[in-house]
Nucleic acid binder design. Structure first.
Lengths: 121, 121
DNA sequence: TCTCTATATAGCCAATAATGAATATAACGG
DNA sequence: CCGTTATATTCATTATTGGCTATATAGAGA
């Protein structure tokens, strides 16, 4: 989990920034140069380059080379792992399972209350 | 996107830590007290409490009250938004679309090369 | 009330991350 | 070779994070 988890660390933390998510959204419409990615934002070019480095570190984009251009391309594969991880929790948000779960575990908790108090360190 | 995006910021950055993901995994088996969550880790209780605060801030867990216990419960709903966001990219990782896409956009890029050079600031 | 137990808060530290300004590199066009 | 464009790197600054220890609070139970 530590070894495989590192990939998830990188992906999730890359996704935790709205600028980076916007960059990915833009790349979903096709590859772009750095300057094309700078334009829509009020951020400086170095700032965007840095965000791109983070995305690249997470494997979410790849860079090409074309003269002085370094076209940026979406690579969605790491999102698959993220989607799979989250997918394991789908049953917890689907159906009105949520409230039922709360209710059941509430009962369970109350049943265990006595045991809990007895728990030794 | 900024307003709705903040929720995603919180969720993704909460998920970006392996300890917090492990806590969620544990909670998927049922609610737990703070001390029960501390045990499996080599981390101090305050550290776990801090992680719980982050998870709570992202809406991923809720806290109850039961005497001196503050049972922690999974709330997977925010994961739904995260799953939806990621889901928009599914088509990019499914099929062997990836390599094809790269190839196509490579061609496209080369076709546009001349136009790119002419681009004015 | 006194003493456990469970949990939270505060304060501190080291490591990392984000931001902006300035500069460097790299490749084209002439 | 020169000038221009595209992008990266460097620095300095500041903010955030994750961990710790020590202490505080809150409730149970004797």
């Amino acid at each position: 989990m530590q070894i495989a988890g590192q990939q998830l660390d990188l992906v999730f933390s890359a996704l935790a920034d709205p600028t980076r998510r916007a960059i990915l959204a833009r790349l979903a419409t096709g590859e772009a140069t750095v300057n094309e990615l700078v334009e829509p934002f009020e951020l400086s070019q170095p700032t965007i380059s840095k965000h791109l480095k983070v995305l690249e570190g997470a494997g979410l984009v790849t860079r090409g080379r074309d003269a002085q251009f370094r076209p940026v391309r979406l690579n969605a594969l790491p999102l698959k792992s993220a989607a799979q991880w989250i997918g394991d929790y789908r049953r917890f948000w689907e159906e009105s399972f949520d409230r039922l779960d709360v209710y059941v575990s509430e009962l369970h908790r109350k049943e265990q209350q006595h045991g809990r108090k007895r728990r030794r360190k």
